[in-house]
Amino acid sequence: MEILINAVTLGSLYLLFALGMSVAWGTIGILNFAHGSTFMFSAMVAYYTVQMVALPMWAMILLGAAVGMVLSVLTQALIFNFILRRNPDLLKAEMQIVVGGIGAASVLLAIAQHYTKSVPFGFSASTFKTTTYQLGAIHISNVQLVILVAAFGLAGLAAWWLKSARAGLALRAIGVNPEVASLMGVDRGRMALGTMAAAGALAGTAGILLTYYLGSIAAETGDSFLISAFAAIILGGIGSVIGVVVGSMILALAETLVVTQLSGTWASAVAFGLIFVVLLFLPRGIFGRKEVRRT
């Protein structure tokens, strides 16, 4: 039971992290390699802030989300937009976007390593204190509860927004056919910026919550989360909210099982192995959209 709760918590963190990345990839076609660094950097900024002012948890989350949003918007406006402007064909620009994202990730990582000297940091200065509740046979901490509520709440919100809101519909239209969408009056640039802002905010939130949950994280934590997120996204199907939820949970469950049953050194192989197996046998993921054939 304990294992299951830990797995669901880990899955929820993957979900928070991967959700924005998946939606951005599935709609505006941007796979942001700096997502992991954005996530880590938000936690680091919050860490330095909390060292000066003892903030409560909700303020930390808001701060992390804000930093993530700003970083993500800057990445989009200063890097991806320039690349796309010089190379309007998204398929051909794909590789440059990956490289630009890697560059942004390196910059953020280098700044973080410079300040933290690669030493793990945590929020012990925050006013928030971890307590564990006992519900029958289940032990669950207040951090875990916040994570579960935040992850499922935000995923539900995203699913509802994409399905029902006018702007969400427009965003999905871009994902299906960018040209037609722009003919229908969808402002692609603004939609892209908005999507990246939301994705960044989610990453920032995930960064704060992960740090509370683990006690501390290091500058390099972002990279390993990035690979896990790929696995979760590909498993569930790119751009699908339910897909990310299911993908994150399956990944977290598999990793937790491997760690407890086998050994820690095999855990990272789970994500890579899943990526591989899914791409080979289920290339569109569990909930992936079928490729639209255009002639």
């Binding site: 890097i79 320039f82 690349i83 010089r86 440059q96 976007i97 490289v99 630009g100 890697i102 560059g103 942004a104 990730a105 390196s106 910059v107 953020l108 990582l109 280098a110």
Partner: peptide
């Protein structure tokens, strides 16, 4: 990192 970004653009 900045060099990589500039090169990509």
């Amino acid at each position: 990192g900045l060099i990589i970004i500039l090169a990509a653009i």
